[in-house]
């Protein structure tokens, strides 16, 4: 039972605890570049997750066969193979999305999330665990891109996934769909998430101090 629980942990830790975008600050380039709309973000995250899951699984399966000195080169070749698959499938099935994402689909090769997970996790763990870890990290990346894309699309073009959500009276902020908006949104999101975490930590500490004082008082009363 405890083993099953830890398997679940391998998956969900990627979503928030070690979220690749907001916690590890990896893969910033695609996060900023493709989040003009939610749809682009989802497509990018799914393509990345596909590559991440399969390369993690594959690397974890052959991890004992790769000599330590050339492991990075071997990982890159494996990743590049899966990126080629993703790129060709997207070009054939979703030509419009592929055009919108431009060079960012082939650039998944140098997305640090994938190499990072390969090096930090898949090279040391069993295929099943690596698979779950990759899936979790992919989900975390998807979450980050949807949040970023959502904010930028709603404010920048009044729509969410192409459906209008803001009233016509709302003047769209053109800046949000321009490059500058991406930097600003990401910076503000990161800052506010830091502020929230810090506040949570401070409240926890205060509660600890209160509890400590309480127990101290109780001790004194008991002595008296």
């Amino acid at each position: 039972m405890s083993k099953q629980k830890s398997m679940w942990y391998e998956f969900y830790k990627g979503i928030w605890e070690i979220n690749p975008t907001f916690k590890q600050i990896l893969g910033t380039c695609p996060t900023l570049a493709v989040t003009v709309s939610v749809m682009n973000g989802i497509a990018m995250a799914l393509a990345t997750t596909f590559v991440l899951v399969f390369s993690s699984l594959f690397i974890s399966m052959v991890r004992k066969l790769i000599p330590n000195q050339v492991r990075i080169a071997a990982y890159i070749v494996i990743i590049a193979a899966f990126v080629t698959v993703a790129d060709l499938v997207m070009k054939a099935k979703f030509p419009e999305l592929s055009k919108a994402l431009g060079p960012f689909v082939p650039l998944i090769v140098v997305n640090c999330i994938i190499l990072g997970r390969a090096e930090a996790f898949a090279s040391k763990n069993s295929p099943l665990r690596s698979f779950l870890d990759a899936l979790g990290n992919g989900a975390g990346f998807l979450l980050a891109l949807v949040v970023m894309g959502g904010i930028r699309e709603i404010i920048g073009s009044r729509t969410f996934l192409g459906y209008q959500v803001m009233p016509n009276g709302f003047e769209p902020w053109l800046i949000m769909i321009l490059p500058a908006g991406a930097f600003l949104t990401f910076g503000l999101l990161m800052g506010f998430s830091n502020a929230y975490l810090e506040r949570k930590k401070r409240i926890e500490q205060q509660q600890k101090i209160l509890q400590y004082r309480k127990s101290e008082n109780e001790l004194k009363e008991a002595e008296a």
Binding site: G181, A182, L184, F186, G187, L188, M190, G191, N194
Partner: peptide, 8 residues
């Protein structure tokens, strides 16, 4: 965060 905002 402030670096990103500056970059913006």
């Amino acid at each position: 965060p402030i670096t990103l905002i500056t970059a913006g």
